[in-house]
């Protein structure tokens, strides 16, 4: 991505979010009109303000006034940032899927392993070993000691 395009894309995404917020606020029913400020007013004002800020951000981005860490002169990202981010994103898509289908163990191992890979671990045996051990420890700690609900069985079948 070139110097000027990434901040602009972020600003445009913000503008899209602002548009969604305005639409969402607009569709809140105002309800019975006995009070000065109803359930819609705060969201409407806030989303309107966000829209204004978003436009200002787009203008700033066009003028190159929004900094991008990708071009930080002191400490730019190392080469391979895209590959590392792909591992992170893949983990964040696959871990919830594993969690949903096979329970906490699967989700935990996928999450841990993809992040470890993104941080430069190469040896898959070590990655899986650490991921499995950590997931079991965390499961014991959260589910058994702290009695949060991670699912009674570590692994389960999807049917």
């Amino acid at each position: 991505m070139t110097a000027s395009r990434a901040p602009l894309l972020a600003a445009l995404a913000l503008a899209a979010l602002a548009g969604l917020a305005v639409w969402g606020a607009w569709s809140i029913p105002q309800g019975p009109g006995f009070s000065t400020v109803g359930p819609r007013d705060f969201p409407l004002v806030l989303s309107g303000m966000l829209a204004v800020f978003a436009i200002a951000a787009v203008v700033q981005a066009l003028r190159g006034r929004i900094p991008d860490e990708a071009h930080n002169p002191d400490e730019p990202p190392l080469a391979g940032a895209l590959a590392r981010m792909s591992w992170m994103i893949a983990g964040m898509l696959l871990a919830p899927l594993g969690l949903h289908l096979f329970g906490f163990f699967a989700g935990g191992v996928i999450g841990f392993a993809t992040v470890a890979r993104a941080f430069g671990a190469r040896n898959w045996a070590a990655i899986i070993g650490w991921a499995a051990a950590s997931t079991i420890v965390v499961w014991l700690l959260f589910d058994k000691v702290l009695t949060l609900k991670l699912g009674n069985e570590l692994l389960r079948l999807p049917f």
Partner: peptide
Amino acid sequence: PWLYGGIIL
């Protein structure tokens, strides 16, 4: 890798 994997976990 283990530190951040653990944080996410």
